[in-house]
């Protein structure tokens, strides 16, 4: 798959849809398209997070290990959203385990290469971090709402 193909795929996602042409080109050059068969672990909680992925199709479940009981899925990630965002951090340790629950595909970015690329390209860094922040804040909001446990049955006054 050519950089041009990767660029087209990225442009079709909300994540990268309105990136400027230069930044998009640079980003596409750093990424590669991957098919992810169902059941593939793309990132593992507590271990080094080697790459950032932007989902093109399918569904990645983010799971937390709960001692004494099965892993719990806390969020699923779909087209346009990212997994492995810890890869852009100085200490890239994954905060959850990402598993493809259906056949999926993604554009993935090698962590060190991406970090080097971002360090060299302020425009790309600013645009990418902005989008990562949107994605992470959306997860934060979701987590807060889930914490409220809104659907939990409360007592009724009758």
């Amino acid at each position: 798959m050519t950089t041009h193909d990767v660029m087209a795929l990225l442009q079709g996602t909300w994540f990268a849809a309105d990136l400027g042409p230069r930044a998009l080109g640079h980003l596409a050059a750093l990424g590669r398209f991957e098919e992810i068969p169902a059941g593939t672990v793309v990132v593992r909680e507590g271990l080094r997070c080697d790459s950032l992925g932007v989902v093109i199709s399918g569904r990645i479940a983010l799971r937390l290990a709960v001692p004494g009981s099965p892993d719990r899925t806390i969020l699923t990630v779909h087209d346009g959203d990212v997994f492995g965002w810890s890869a852009v951090l100085p200490r890239p340790v994954a905060t959850s385990t990402g598993v493809a629950v259906v056949p999926s595909s993604a554009i993935t970015f090698d962590g060190p290469a991406l970090r080097a690329g971002l360090a060299a390209d302020c425009e790309l860094a600013s645009a990418l971090f902005e989008r990562l922040l949107v994605s992470v804040s959306r997860r934060l909001i979701a987590t807060r709402v889930q914490l409220l446990d809104l659907y939990q049955a409360g007592a009724a006054p009758w």
């Binding site: 479940a61 719990r72 969020l75 699923t76 259906v102 959306r138 909001i141 709402v145």
Partner: peptide
Amino acid sequence: EIVDRAGPEWLGQVGIVTHLFDH
């Protein structure tokens, strides 16, 4: 459909209901 939390047997979506359409 989306649920707030699920075990590994659930292959559907997990998250809050607005995630189903905000993008």
